[in-house]
Amino acid sequence: VRQEELAAARAALHDLMTGKRVATVQKDGRRVEFTATSVSDLKKYIAELEVQTGM
């Protein structure tokens, strides 16, 4: 499950970095929206997932 969450989070980051205004991911069973202003929060979430998956 964590691998899927990590892939979704990375895709969301890619979307935001390429101009999409809002990206949505499932985080702990709930839907979370990230915007360009919350990229740093999304990067932290990705880092947490990488630690949890041993990457």
Rank of each mutant, 00 (worst) to 15 (best):
Ala7Phe: 11
Gly29Ser: 04
Lys43Leu: 14
Thr18Val: 07
Lys27Gly: 04
Leu42Thr: 00
Glu4Ala: 15
Gln52Lys: 12
Lys27Cys: 09
Lys43Tyr: 11
Ala47Cys: 10
Lys43Trp: 08
Ala47Glu: 11
Gly54Arg: 09
Lys27Glu: 03
Ala47Met: 11
Lys27Val: 15
Ala23Asn: 02
Gln26Lys: 09
Gln3Glu: 11
Val39Tyr: 04
Gly19Ile: 02
Leu16Ser: 00
Leu6Glu: 01
Leu42Glu: 00
Gln52Met: 14
Val39Phe: 06
Tyr45Thr: 02
Asp41His: 06
Lys27His: 06
Tyr45Gln: 02
Glu50Asp: 04
Asp28Lys: 04
Gln3Ile: 14
Leu49Thr: 01
Tyr45Gly: 00
Gly29Ala: 03
Lys20Ala: 14
Ser40Tyr: 05
Glu4Ile: 13
Leu42Trp: 01
Val1Cys: 13
Gln26Asp: 09
Thr24Trp: 07
Arg2Ile: 13
Ala12Cys: 03
Glu33Asn: 06
Ala12Thr: 02
Gln3Met: 14
Lys43Thr: 06
Glu48Ala: 08
Asp41Val: 08
Val32Phe: 13
Lys44Ala: 15
Lys20Trp: 03
Val51Ser: 15
Ser40Gly: 15
Lys44Ile: 09
Thr37Asn: 15
Ala8Tyr: 08
Ala23Pro: 02
Lys27Gln: 10
Val25Gly: 03
Gly29Pro: 01
His14Gly: 05
Arg10Ala: 04
Ala7Trp: 12
Ser38Pro: 01
Glu48Gln: 11
Gln52Phe: 09
Thr18Ser: 13
Thr53Asn: 14
Val22Ile: 10
Thr35Gly: 05
Val32Ile: 13
Val32His: 07
Ala7Gly: 05
Val22Ala: 08
Gln3His: 13
Ala8Glu: 12
Arg2Phe: 13
Met55Leu: 12
Ala36Pro: 08
Gly19His: 04
Met55Trp: 04
Met17Cys: 09
Ala8Gly: 06
Lys44Ser: 09
Thr35Ser: 08
Leu16Thr: 00
Glu50His: 04
Asp41Arg: 06
Leu13Arg: 00
Met55Lys: 10
Gln3Ala: 12
Thr35Ala: 05
Ala47Gly: 06
Ala8Gln: 12
Ala7Gln: 11
Ala11Cys: 09
Thr24Met: 10
Thr37Tyr: 07
Glu50Met: 09
Ala23Lys: 02
Arg2Ser: 09
Arg21Val: 11
Gly54Asn: 12
Thr24Gly: 06
Leu49Cys: 02
Ala7Asn: 12
Ala36Ser: 11
Ala9Leu: 10
Arg21Ala: 15
Ala47Ser: 10
Ala11His: 08
Met17Ser: 05
Lys27Asp: 03
Leu16Met: 03
Met55His: 11
Gly54Tyr: 05
Glu33Met: 07
Arg21Glu: 12
Gln52Arg: 10
Leu13Glu: 01
Ile46Arg: 00
Gln26Met: 15
Ala47Phe: 12
Ser40His: 12
Gly54His: 10
Glu50Asn: 04
Glu5Asp: 08
Glu4Tyr: 14
Asp41Gln: 10
Val1Phe: 14
Arg21Asn: 11
Val25Arg: 02
Phe34Thr: 01
Leu16Arg: 01
Lys43Val: 13
Leu49Asn: 01
Asp15Thr: 05
Val32Met: 11
Leu42Pro: 00
Tyr45Met: 07
Ala12Phe: 03
Leu16Gln: 00
His14Asp: 07
Val25Met: 05
Gln3Val: 13
Ser38Ile: 04
Glu33Lys: 07
Arg21Thr: 14
Asp41Leu: 11
Asp15Met: 11
Thr35Met: 05
Met55Ala: 12
Lys27Phe: 08
Glu48Asn: 06
Thr37Lys: 10
Arg21Gln: 13
Ala12Arg: 02
Ala8Val: 08
Leu16Trp: 02
Lys27Tyr: 05
Val39Thr: 05
Val22Gln: 06
Tyr45Leu: 11
Gln3Lys: 12
Glu5Ser: 08
Gln52Glu: 13
Asp41Ala: 11
Glu4Asp: 12
Met55Tyr: 04
Glu50Tyr: 06
Met17Trp: 04
Val22Pro: 03
Ala36Asp: 07
Ile46Gly: 00
Lys20Asp: 05
Thr53Glu: 12
Ser38Tyr: 03
Arg31Phe: 14
Gly29Asp: 04
Gly19Gln: 03
Tyr45Ile: 07
Leu42Ala: 01
Arg31Trp: 15
Leu42His: 00
Gly19Tyr: 02
Lys43Ile: 14
Gly54Ile: 07
Val51Gly: 11
Ala36Arg: 11
Thr24Phe: 13
Tyr45Val: 04
Leu42Asp: 00
Leu49Met: 05
Arg21Cys: 10
Gly29Phe: 03
Arg30Ile: 13
Gly19Pro: 01
Leu42Phe: 02
Lys43Asp: 03
Gln26Val: 15
Glu5Gly: 05
Glu33Gly: 03
Arg21Ser: 13
Asp28Trp: 00
Glu50Trp: 05
Lys27Trp: 04
Ala11Phe: 04
Glu4His: 14
Leu16Pro: 00
Val1Thr: 14
Val1Ala: 13
Val39Cys: 07
Thr53Phe: 15
Met55Ile: 14
Ala7Val: 10
Arg31Thr: 14
Leu16Val: 03
Thr18Met: 13
Phe34Gly: 01
Leu13Lys: 00
Lys44Gln: 11
Arg30His: 11
Leu16Cys: 02
Thr35Asn: 09
Lys20Cys: 08
Tyr45Ser: 01
Ala47Trp: 12
Ala7Leu: 12
Val1His: 14
Ser40Cys: 13
Gly54Met: 07
Val39Trp: 05
Asp15Asn: 08
Arg30Gly: 06
Glu4Val: 12
Glu33Pro: 03
Gln26Tyr: 15
Arg10Trp: 06
Val51Phe: 14
Glu4Phe: 13
Lys44Leu: 10
Leu49Gly: 01
Ala7Thr: 09
Leu42Cys: 02
Asp15Cys: 10
Leu13Val: 02
Phe34Pro: 00
Ala23Phe: 02
Thr37Pro: 04
Glu4Leu: 14
Arg10Pro: 00
His14Val: 10
Val25Ala: 04
Arg2Tyr: 13
Leu13Pro: 00
Leu13Trp: 04
